[in-house]
């Protein structure tokens, strides 16, 4: 009886070890946190628009379609890297992308979009970063998928890479169904 009980610690040990091993080998980024806004409505905000004369009012913009919201700035170099993919979303996939210009110089931003191409349907200006805080943003670039009725379905922190581009496309297709 007692000898049989002795096997329990070794089994436990192997179990714990395999759990750790599993967590090590699966593709996972432990610093990646799901947004607290998932499945919630987009925060209400009103902001000056970089390209249009009228103000951007969030309650008027989010509604029927799937929209990508991308926080960017000209001073952020990963934003430049992901710009190709943002353009592909807008041009190839026909997805509306709203670009929130985070703590940036407006003239630089206009110039930047002129040079690199403008994939954004509208660019609200977040001068002091308060809009970003309402969205729970902690480091740009960040990209959100917002589905109809303005509900946030996904948040990606960091630049969009080829892999993430594919992932977001897949997610959008899933949401559409």
């Amino acid at each position: 009886m007692k000898k049989q009980l002795l096997i329990i610690p070794s089994i436990l040990f192997v179990l714990i070890l395999s759990t750790f091993f599993y967590l090590l080998i699966i593709e996972r980024n432990p610093s990646e946190l799901p947004s607290n806004l998932l499945n919630k409505n987009v925060p209400n905000f009103k902001a000056e628009s970089l390209l249009k004369n009228e103000n951007f009012v969030s309650s008027k913009e989010f509604g029927n379609e799937i929209i990508l919201v991308n926080f960017f700035a000209t001073w952020c170099s990963p934003c430049r890297d992901e710009h190709v993919y943002i353009k592909r979303f807008a041009n190839e996939k026909g997805i509306r992308v709203i670009g929130i210009n985070y703590k940036d110089n407006s003239n630089n931003a206009i110039e930047w979009l002129k040079n690199l191409g403008n994939p954004y349907s509208d660019v609200p200006i977040d001068k002091d970063g308060r809009i970003a805080i309402d969205w729970g943003v902690y480091g740009i670039p960040e990209t959100f998928i917002v589905k109809s009725k303005g509900i946030i379905k996904y948040r990606h922190v960091g630049p969009i890479t080829k892999k993430i581009y594919k992932k977001i496309n897949l997610l959008i297709r899933e949401i559409e169904q």
Binding site: L33, P34, S35, N36, L37, I133, D134, W135, G136, Y138
Partner: peptide, 8 residues
């Protein structure tokens, strides 16, 4: 704060 950033 937690509404925006979660308990983290």
């Amino acid at each position: 704060l937690t509404d925006r950033y979660g308990d983290f």
